[in-house]
Design a protein around this nucleic acid. Sequence first.
RNA 1: GCCGAUGUGGCUCAGUGGUAGAGCACUCGAUUCGUAAUCGAGCGGUCGCGGGUUCAAAUCCCGCCAUCGGCUCCA
Length: 623
Amino acid sequence: MVSQLSRPSSSDRATPSDPQRLQRLRHTCAHVLAMAVQRLFPETHVTIGPWTETGFYYDFDRADPFTPDDLGRIEAAMGQIIGANLPIIRETVDRDELRSEIVQMNEPYKLEILDGIPLGEPITRYYIGCPDLISPSNADDEPSLFDVSALKAGESTCWWDLCAGPHLNRTGEIDPEAFALESVAGAYWRGDETKPQLQRIYGTAWETPEQLEAYLQQKEEAKRRDHRKLGQELDLFSIQEEAGGGLVFWHPKGARMRLLIEDYWRTAHLATGYDLLYTPHIANLDLWKTSGHFEFYRENMFDQMEIEAQQYQLRPMNCPFHVLTYQNKLHSYRELPLRWAELGTVYRYERSGVLHGLMRVRGFTQDDAHVFCLPEQVSDEILAVLNLTEQILSDFGFAEYEVNLSTRPAKSVGTDAIWELATDALRQALDTKGWAYVTDEGGGAFYGPKIDIKIRDAIGRLWQCSTIQVDFNLPERFDMEYVAVDGSRQRPIMIHRAIFGSLERFFGILVENYAGDFPLWLAPVQLRLLPVSDGQRDYANGVAQTLKQQGYRVEVDTSGDRLGKQIRTAELEKIPIVAVVGKREVEQQTLSVRTRQSGDLGALTVAEVQGRMAAAIADRGRV
RNA sequence: GCCGAUGUGGCUCAGUGGUAGAGCACUCGAUUCGUAAUCGAGCGGUCGCGGGUUCAAAUCCCGCCAUCGGCUCCA
């Protein structure tokens, strides 16, 4: 038994292998964490602790909060448990025996879990360091929690958790250099906010220290790209306490970029058969009662305001306005499909704790559109939306997607026939497009099935932006009609779709994707001219004027700083191209060009610079 | 909304009960300069807001607001 207490040798730790092993490892880490916590804080109740994408967590019930300091102590204790290489033993147990044991231990959450296991299912527990296997002589040299001789009477090194498993065989199989505790957060028991709030300790765990290092670097990279940080540094936008949380101020540079995005979007839509609408940001509350939002979406709506004894509502969505526009006259089947798009600003009440930079705000602009069409047009319209989505997203540098098709949920409106028609239309469009997708059975909205598209960014993260939804509800509620071939009144099908989703959010994603280093066509300032000394200021201004007249975003550094400083400033502002203007350049009527992408390009004429910029803009690339 | 953390000049951050600090930015002066920081001076803060304790509060206590990490929710 001595070997079981020895420090783990490197051979105990497997080299990278299968994902199941990694999950076991992470799950075991969660147990080791819980064991360490209960050793250090015996009054703590345990609950659940699963593995996650990057590690593990365990939820605890304890009156006092865990401090960052505690985290360090817990991590050290985990290191000791791992160092002691304790055996992990699975035991199938009798439900009633275990029940009385849990009652005696006063672990109410475990009791709830046990009682939730269906009768007849095997019940297992996992021991770490079964006391029978450990004798005092085996204690390690250095005093530790698991130095048995240091234990008080009645204490043991043994710890167990009710758990289905699976786990590693010994704690020593965890590489002590490949895990780390990350943070403490509140979490509700069973994810239900009416239930007690627990303290969740998050950790990360990997097979090797190198993998841990890579993960930590990825985290650093994400931090470096954080749109909130870059938004401040590059002076793109702000969110101000005085105005309120979740309300975005677009600064000149951010606004310039937004304008470019909007112009691109409008052009693309007009070119693909859309018409554009502008509709109000508030409307009579009755509209929202008709649409059903007041009943079903109220918790996300700002409070109503009273205007001359009428209730008005700030809009959380654009769709009712587009429906009203449709209702303003009688439509023939010959007019359909109607494709109406609007950069529609909406306001939604979000609980203060969920606000997050540009990603989650209270006022935002959707690149919304609604297609009103005949049933037989649905499939083609969906396909057209998919094509437009691909064109737009790829122009912004996103070429990889993950697609979900969500089908009819249990609670829903509409007939089987119409659900089938719509779901088939979505499926058929995806098949024609040739996109692989995952079906989320029952994941659709109550009013219709939908396709969601996630884009993968430069560091591999997925962001859900685009959504295409078929809606049977609003046409019904508003009694929408068109006149069919036979003169009868028929109900059109309505498709909601957004490609960016929210301009604010998409802009945030762009910032993170490019780490603020935008391709030339999006860069708020494309070229900055740097005069070496005051004598070149007029020439620089002249060149800037010429290029500005051609539509380029050009400015002259007016700081009076030395060249080195001007270059440093431009680099920090991530300006794609700088052009040094000194005596030489003025004499030869050239610019000495330096780009972020390619470094020093030497002396070029203004026409040459203009040509290179035009080429880079045309292919949405860099100089 | 809930749990925890944080909040000090425009920005990044020192300052744990005794006269509010630094760097950058900004302004002014000198320098007219060749590819990532020229030198000097100056301006600038009721220390998130409101209350309380104390002779004395950025510092201790209470409430609120905002931000950050999560939960829940979601574009």
